[in-house]
Design a protein around this nucleic acid. Sequence first.
RNA 1: UGAGUAAGACAGGUGAUCGCUGCUGCAUGGCCGAAAGGGUGCAGGAGAGGAAAGUCCGGGCUUCACAGGGCAGGGUGCCAGAUAACGUCUGGCGGAGGUGACUCCAGGGACAGUGCAACAGAAAUAAACCGCCUGACUCGUCAGGUAAGGGUGGAAAGGCAGUGUAAGAGACUACCGCCUCGCUGGUAACAGAGAGGGCACAUGUAAACCCCACUCGAAGCAAGACCGAACAGGGAGCAUAAGGCGGCCCGUCUGCUUCCGGGUAGGUCGCUUGAGCUGUCUGGUGACAGGCAGACUAGAUAGAUGAUCAUCCACGACAUAACCCGGCUUAUCGUUUUGCUCAGAAU
Length: 114
Amino acid sequence: MKRFHSLKKNSEFQAVYRTGKSYANKYLVMYVLDTDKQGNRIGISASKKFGNSVERHRFARLVRESFRLNEDILEDGKDIVVVARTAAKDKSFDKIESAFLHLCGLHNILKESK
RNA sequence: UGAGUAAGACAGGUGAUCGCUGCUGCAUGGCCGAAAGGGUGCAGGAGAGGAAAGUCCGGGCUUCACAGGGCAGGGUGCCAGAUAACGUCUGGCGGAGGUGACUCCAGGGACAGUGCAACAGAAAUAAACCGCCUGACUCGUCAGGUAAGGGUGGAAAGGCAGUGUAAGAGACUACCGCCUCGCUGGUAACAGAGAGGGCACAUGUAAACCCCACUCGAAGCAAGACCGAACAGGGAGCAUAAGGCGGCCCGUCUGCUUCCGGGUAGGUCGCUUGAGCUGUCUGGUGACAGGCAGACUAGAUAGAUGAUCAUCCACGACAUAACCCGGCUUAUCGUUUUGCUCAGAAU
């Protein structure tokens, strides 16, 4: 299996926003939708309000890295959308990663939590 | 040495582990495919900027339009050159600033016409408020002359000095400025000296309309080209077994096969070898042009450069390619090189 799967279409994002459940903390907002398909998919969103191109790319990389390193402890068959909040700007990797795992815990999609 | 001025260079480095996107090689009777190949795995090597930014100009490229001419509209605006082209660049000219190196200038036309010029001021394109002078008389008023002086303003009928005069005024004179004429130098912008005018309808504004000269077709890589599930459409054949429109036949619609053509999702190309880069030589004051040699240096398509650790130091600013080039503008922690100028010291 190559890389990891990501959400691409606007319609896929809209489906998660409308029908998925959401939790938020200081840095991130996370939407999760059950798909019953194999593999998890992630979509990352940072609006222009968040910052310029460099800052938005930086945020996306940190979230992608958090997802990649922790994918094996996540349950299967989820569409996840992560939205940036402005407080996440200029934050280090471990802050973003802990925020990501915190939200995964709230969504109850960690394998250990069962 | 200090202060300044101009032109450049660099844009955290090194090592380790995990991860991402192309490329090359090898492997893979195992996953897909008839095959080519794809996929997967391993290895090697490559992988953002000086502004990649703003999208303000110009060009290539692509599609559309196009006999020729004119109008409208846009752009440019001292001269010569460079260039594929430009609103860019180079060298001059003129003006402004600086002791200087040097810097800055949207720098055609205001006797073609129209418009506008707040406030202040007596008056703003038209002039007598104060003042000055002359005359008259009822003795502080009237009539007339006057733009030298006062005050207002960005701008008040060329400036300054003198002659002159009742007081004044280019009324006259010298110098400077302006205008006209030819002469000399220069490709030209322009400069120089000379002669004449006697200063006029008299100010400013053309990033106000406008006039003059030159110039411009439109839209953009989500351009566009090709392949092409699905799904509308048409032709041919088959079945005519069944059903609908008919009481029945013909006909027609529904069905299946096949072909044609349009074309959505999706895919492939466009997509990186180029008006390019590096070095060097020649021509040119220079922008630049030409010759020779060398290297190949991102090509993603929801969009690849990240994470962790160690270590060094100046403790790392601004900011992420999206078809490609030439410029402009704006942002930027700092480090550093070279030329030149001024001041001081020493020889």
